[in-house]
Nucleic acid binder design. Structure first.
Lengths: 226, 226
DNA sequence: TTTAAAAAATGATTTTTATCATACAAATCG
DNA sequence: CGATTTGTATGATAAAAATCATTTTTTAAA
């Protein structure tokens, strides 16, 4: 069983404030899971009673809208914690977490986290800052949805995927999303997403090879996204 | 100078966890302001270095989008705290706060709030819960923007205004927003907003008398908003 | 009170986006 | 391996929404 001490999640999340003893205690009560691509870590409406540490892999956080489409609210990668919000609010999960690639996650029960809260001020502060960051992102994202065109949002999203998740050796976006998922991030119909990708391709701004998307003209995409 | 102890903000915000002594200390270092309708409490990009307690009145929290339109991200009413997020993140304000009616607000400096954080665990927890609530609202709002039509969003927004801010004696919505502001909440062009309001009016779902909007058929609006 | 300015309303038109239909490609399965 | 399913692509069309123009109403100011 891992010791948490060297875990990537410790370096990038609120957990960095934990002491050695606290880490050992956490290592003791955590549960490790392997999640296969396409499987869910938790579903909207579920009571999780703890947080999940993403050790490896990327997942989408989605919400089912009234019209039956899955909106991707955010992507979470290794180093992040999932389910903090609902744990703190004492509510069922507002979003589902579904693996976009094979993942390694650990579950830490709420009781444990709550102890850290009470003992370790820096830990609380760190978690608060993370959630505040999420709130800012959500507000900004909301304004994009409300004010930008689908084309602008596609350009913006491609740049985000590039900058946040990087590229493969051949320069293509590392994160592999289906067209439907990409449309779900942008908030549009799958066909519209495909059509605009084709247009970007024809303009030479991106290259489409199979499922792979390669950004060819970052500046142009920046200009488009405003 | 007010004592904070009886203040409405204390009943509805994280401040309810403060002890008598803490409240006295806060009363001592706070500054009270009267804000006229249309004036701003703070602007996007400004460093506020504290939080504002809304004693009376309602304000809009807006973000200027790239196309020059003000998107209203949320409305804040008496009892709420403003500027918590940027204070905790140690960042400039992400949103502007502009009074929709005459307001009474108090400013409490960051140093004071931070002391409460370190001393009073319940206070931290309360504030965290508030921010978590905001995050959930923002995520839900984002999904609405991405997946719902303008008509659905208008119906939803009218119901929200009704349920959250109530009505005047004559049944009209208490909150007075210009058509431009309403459009800014929904995320649409002012003309589209006006056109749909007219349509709702013709259908008998709302009544328009001057600036006043009265909801006539709540169920129908609920059905429209899905 | 009259006038000027701002806000609201409506029409005409264009642009954007969704939807439906179908074709094609690629992955999956027996 | 071929057959079937799933994902991607594209065309045609309809619906939704933005934009521009103009009129009417309301508000504020002189």
């Amino acid at each position: 069983m891992g010791k948490c001490e060297q875990c990537i999640v410790r370096q990038f999340s609120a957990l960095k404030a934990l002491s050695k003893e606290e880490l050992l205690r956490m290592a003791d009560c955590k549960t490790s899971y392997t999640i296969k691509k396409g499987e869910s870590i938790f579903e909207e409406g579920e009571t999780t009673n703890g947080v999940f540490c993403v050790k490896d892999g990327v997942c989408k956080m989605t919400k089912l809208s009234a019209n039956g489409k899955d909106q991707i609210v955010k992507l979470a990668k290794s180093g992040e914690l999932l389910g903090q919000r609902s744990m703190i609010s004492d509510e069922p999960a507002n979003l589902s977490a579904v693996a976009l690639e094979d993942m390694e996650v650990c579950f830490v029960p709420k009781s444990e986290i709550m102890q850290f809260f009470n003992q370790n001020n820096q830990f609380s502060m760190n978690m608060m800052k993370t959630i505040c960051g999420d709130l800012k992102d959500a507000d900004d994202h909301m304004v994009s949805m409300a004010q930008k065109s689908v084309k602008e949002r596609l350009a913006e999203t491609l740049l985000y995927l590039h900058d946040s998740f990087g590229t493969n050796a051949d320069g293509s976006l590392r994160i592999q999303l289906s067209r439907e998922e990409l449309a779900g991030m942008i908030g549009t119909a799958t066909e519209s997403c495909i059509r605009l990708l084709s247009e970007f391709n024809k303009n030479g701004w991106v290259d489409l090879t199979g499922k792979k998307i390669t950004i060819k003209n970052k500046n142009q995409l920046k200009k488009i996204s405003e």
